[in-house]
């Protein structure tokens, strides 16, 4: 983990509430792996006080990208940054996706909803470079919530989209689309990122089908590097549930490790 108080924004793209920033930072990009995240300061002052966790959308060389959706004041401040501005970031943080075993003749399905697509671009590129087959399922409420379609396609990544309102692709939840497709074929594993209810559906589906799955979880984070204990989730340990830190032990966990609250 490194601290770069001045990662420069060299490119910015905007689609409504969604923004993509390309940054330059040797410190942050050198050890970056898919599934890891940054803690980004949104202001020089102390309000908002805390850094915001944002996934690595891509990384390579001295460049890295973040992709985010405005969710409140902190992300709105980030969205107001311009090319040439600098960002104060800590990272890369957390343990990313475990990719051992995913080489040629293996296939991985990646499932992302809304802003949850963010880490899956870096993941898809990395899997492809290892020779694995990759298929991405990308869902949103409506067509304007799946702005990265072209980016995935132009990177040569097989893409299936869904929208809740049917305005583009499959009409329904992305996990429902996944369920349909799983009747026709099986990958060697899947990877998912999105809101908790989606992660729970994806996780239970994987367990039912006996498919290995890795899920990236979210939580409100005070620090992002393991000291405040704010970001805990129930994770199986010795057949019981223990609170584990999402920022340090995750954010990626195996579907078989995660315990969901009983409804």
């Amino acid at each position: 983990m490194r601290h770069d108080p001045a990662a420069r924004i060299i490119q910015k793209k905007t689609w409504g509430d969604f923004h993509l920033l390309r940054l330059e930072s040797q410190a942050l990009s050198s050890e970056a792996a898919p599934g890891q995240f940054l803690m980004v300061r949104t202001t020089d002052g102390y309000d908002p006080l805390l850094r915001r966790p944002i996934s690595l959308h891509d990384a390579g060389g001295i460049g890295l990208e973040i992709f985010f959706r405005v969710a409140g004041r902190g992300t709105a401040l980030l969205a107001a940054k311009k090319e040439g501005d600098i960002l104060d970031c800590l990272g890369p943080l957390g343990k990313g996706f475990r990719l051992d075993g995913f080489g040629p003749d293996k296939t991985a399905w990646l499932v992302g909803g809304g802003r949850g697509i963010a880490p899956l671009f870096f993941l898809a590129r990395t899997l492809l470079s290892k020779g694995a087959g990759v298929r991405v399922f990308y869902g949103g409420k409506t067509v304007s919530e799946i702005p990265l379609r072209e980016k995935f396609e132009s990177a040569g990544i097989l893409l299936d989209c869904s929208t809740d309102d049917g305005s583009f692709g499959f009409a329904g939840l992305v996990t429902t689309l996944l369920e349909h497709e799983l009747r026709a074929g099986r990958p060697d594993g899947f990877f998912a990122c999105g809101p908790d209810p989606m992660m729970e559906r994806a996780g239970r589906l994987a367990l039912r089908l006996g498919l290995p799955a890795q899920l990236s979880l979210e939580a409100i984070m005070g620090c992002g590097f393991g000291v405040c204990w704010s970001c805990v989730h129930r994770i199986k340990k010795d057949n019981e549930g223990a609170w584990r830190k999402i920022c340090e032990d995750g954010p990626v966990f195996g579907a078989d490790e995660i315990l969901w609250e009983e409804a």
Partner: peptide, 23 residues
């Protein structure tokens, strides 16, 4: 000790409220 159930932290104006529960 395990500490409290989440959510354990919320940000407020120039501050935060924690209910980590001393794990």
């Amino acid at each position: 000790r395990e500490g409290n159930p989440p959510p354990r932290l919320v940000e407020t104006a120039s501050g935060l409220i924690n209910a980590i529960g001393l794990p």
